[in-house]
Amino acid sequence: MRKQITDFTIVEKQVFNETYFTLKLQHPGILPEIKAGQFVEVEVPGNKQVVLRRPISIHDVDTDNNTITLLIQVVGKGTKTLSNMKEGDTINMVYPLGHGFSLEGEKVLLVGGGAGIAPLLHLSKCLNLKGIHPVILLGGRTKSLIPIQKEFEPYGQVCFATEDGSLGEKGLVTQHSMFSRDYDHIYTCGPTPMMKAVARHALDKGIECEVSLENMMACGIGACLCCVVDSDQGHKCVCKEGPVFNAKQLTNWINNK
């Protein structure tokens, strides 16, 4: 898939709370194919001190209307600037970047935490197109930190785990009653300790598992070599060789606390 640099227009902005917002972005022409798990590098406009783009995973894709949606967590200066953008503003993106999820498996579990929920919506839809209806387990510290909930309902069996019990079962996703059921494929994206715990479980049980990593990066296209993960085959660029990796490639990383 050829990568592009394109100016998108913000057609819809939804603010959930101080931490999370979504931007629905209109492509000026025909949107290319975008695989679940791929990401974009977003230019941060108007802030001359912030020179680097921000890597953001693709939350949703609407090929009929040529739009993509990003779910963004405010974590620093760049995402804070992006949170001040308005409908009608232009946003420049380099995309689609990285390798997506394989869409393999029959009895499939998705595990998302925090902003890591983002790529799982497009993933759920892509799995549905293959006739797969996954169990979708979403976790967070508290209810308000799981920004997207009902949007998942058409695409699988949705369940929640919160540390304070404000939504779904109380505890971590790995303690949820649906977590240890019989699956043949797990896809996970979220905080590193969560993904490591999920991947360890999968490796122990012999379940195929794909993790989507989120290292700090500059270029997003495999040139700067800044975003490497210590894989079992040496340093690999998360942007180009990931962001999705099979857990079997990352046993060093998974077992390194």
Partner: peptide, 13 residues
């Protein structure tokens, strides 16, 4: 890793 940090109008690698 980590091998980079953004700094005002630049980056460290």
């Amino acid at each position: 890793y980590p091998r980079m940090a953004e700094t005002p109008s630049g980056m460290l690698n």
